[in-house]
C-alpha cells in the first residue's frame, strides 16, 4: 500500500521539485559548515600563531573572536536552514501530499 504510494510519488513533478530544492539548500550549507570548521582546525594544526595575534591593545586574540564566532556561526546556520525549511520546503511538501491525498 505504502510502496504503491511511494512509487507514484517519485514520478510527480512536485516530488522532483521538493528533492531538488532540498538538495540546493542542504548541500551548500553542509559544505560551508565543513569548510569553515576544517579551515579553523587546519589553522590550529599548521599556523597556530595566526590565532595568537592580538586584536587590540588588550589580551583578546583573533583565535578567541574566531572561536566564539564559530559558535554563533553554527547556530546561525541551523537557523537559516530551519527558516528555509519552513518557507520553501514545507509548502512544497504540503503541495505534494495534497496531490496524493495524504493529509
Amino acid at each position: 500500500m505504502i510502496e504503491k504510494k511511494l512509487d507514484e510519488l517519485q514520478h510527480l513533478s512536485e516530488y522532483r521539485d521538493l528533492v531538488a530544492t532540498r538538495r540546493r539548500i542542504i548541500w551548500p550549507l553542509a559544505i560551508l559548515m565543513l569548510l569553515v570548521y576544517y579551515a579553523y582546525i587546519l589553522v590550529i594544526a599548521f599556523k597556530p600563531e595566526l590565532f595568537a595575534a592580538k586584536i587590540g591593545e588588550g589580551h583578546t586574540t583573533f583565535g578567541i573572536v574566531i572561536g566564539l564566532g564559530l559558535i554563533f556561526f553554527s547556530f546561525l546556520l541551523t537557523g537559516i536552514y530551519v527558516h528555509k525549511a519552513n518557507t520553501k520546503l514545507e509548502p512544497l511538501t504540503k503541495k505534494l501530499l495534497e496531490k496524493t491525498g495524504d493529509l
Partner: peptide
C-alpha cells in the same frame, strides 16, 4: 577547541 568540535556536529545532523 573541544567546545567547538562538540558543537559543529549539530548543523551536520540537522542538514
Amino acid at each position: 577547541i573541544y567546545s567547538i568540535g562538540f558543537l559543529v556536529g549539530w548543523p551536520i545532523i540537522l542538514l
